[in-house]
Design a protein around this nucleic acid. Structure first.
Length: 315
DNA sequence: TTGTGTTTATTTTGGG
DNA sequence: CCCAAAATAAACACAA
């Protein structure tokens, strides 16, 4: 190594944006969700660069979590210790780094927010599917915050993991792990509604008793996932595929997965007794979504402030 | 009080 | 060079 003193790039800024770092951290977890503190930890463990100026970058990181719709917050179950919520990736954010750059996304992933009070006048919603009934908002209080922010933003189609694959070590999960959400195919379109509930698909499925593909859900597609910088004394090493955190078996009984059931603040439940499976679960979380779920592709979403909205991904 | 979250404003930077 | 994405700052609300 033609590098004398400093044995590595360790003190240089990693070629990842906060968004990619965060996504990386989240994806590395078996549940696909992490509390803020663990995201910090993940980053610090792997990137020495971030062991300094913590105040600065952590503030930025938090800003990113709140600001970017690709991150969703999932409340802890009351019986789970710790502060703050869990953070997960929005199911529809797909592969945000298809372009091959972890520094910049092609386009931002933003959800269209519908103004509660003024949406009736049919805001122009480019969606990949026409209609979507305007539900009169009810009950839930709304926050003025992010409403009306109609950024032209990306997405709609699931990213395909293209590029990342190359970072994965051949062996391991031969199946080639795409995106955790690829699993959507396993449950059909209902996933959208489910996702709207804020639950990571893996968790939902596990929770509902669906078999969660081991290996598939575990591996990471990120270069640094599963790799600690500490032990490796140097450079950005080639990637290592330390698949960790095996998915705990689901020997039937195992009550709750280590997954918190999102209890939406606004979800004054709608006691719909007969729905089954996913639908039922979602229904409990957000009554209104149940009916909408039936409708084709309307993406139901909840905004960062907790209220539920129909949301369409702009393109 | 600290750790979390949100939000607004401003500046920097990656890429076309 | 231009634009949008990302980074940085900072004010402020909130809960444990």
């Amino acid at each position: 190594m033609p590098r004398p003193g400093k044995n590595s790039y360790s003190d240089q800024k990693p070629p990842y944006s906060y968004i990619s770092l965060t996504a990386m951290a989240i994806q590395s977890s078996s549940e696909k969700m992490l509390p803020l503190s663990d995201i910090y930890k993940f980053i610090m463990d792997r990137f020495p660069y971030y062991r300094e100026n913590t105040q600065r970058w952590q503030n930025s990181l938090r800003h990113n979590l709140s600001f970017n719709d690709c991150f969703i917050k999932i409340p802890r179950r009351p019986d789970q210790p710790g502060k703050g919520s869990f953070w997960a990736l929005h199911p529809d954010c797909g592969d945000m780094f298809e372009n091959g750059s972890f520094l910049r996304r092609r386009k931002r992933f933003k959800l269209m927010r519908v103004e509660h009070s003024a949406c009736k006048s049919g805001p122009v919603l480019h969606s990949y599917h026409s209609h979507h009934s305007q539900h009169p908002l009810h009950q839930s209080h709304h926050h003025p915050s992010k409403l009306g922010v109609g950024h032209p933003e990306y997405l709609g189609t699931m990213g395909r993991l293209s590029h990342f694959q190359s970072y994965t070590l051949g062996g391991g999960q031969s199946g080639g792990f795409k995106h955790p959400f690829a699993i959507e195919s396993l449950i059909g379109r209902d996933y959208k509604g489910v996702m709207a509930s804020g639950l990571p698909i893996a968790s939902v499925m596990h929770h509902l008793g669906y078999p969660v593909p081991v290996g598939g859900m575990v591996n990471s597609v990120w270069p640094h996932v599963g790799m600690l910088s500490e032990p490796v004394s140097s450079d950005y090493p080639p990637f290592s595929v330390a698949v960790k955190g095996l998915y705990h078996h689901h020997p039937g009984h195992q009550s709750m997965p280590a997954v918190p059931v999102p209890i939406k603040p606004t979800a004054t439940l709608g006691t719909v007794p007969s729905l089954t499976g996913m639908t039922a679960g979602v229904t409990q979380l957000c009554p209104r979504s149940a009916s909408l779920m039936e409708r084709d592709a309307t993406t139901l979403v909840e905004d960062k402030s907790g209220s539920l909205h129909h949301a369409l991904l702009q393109s």
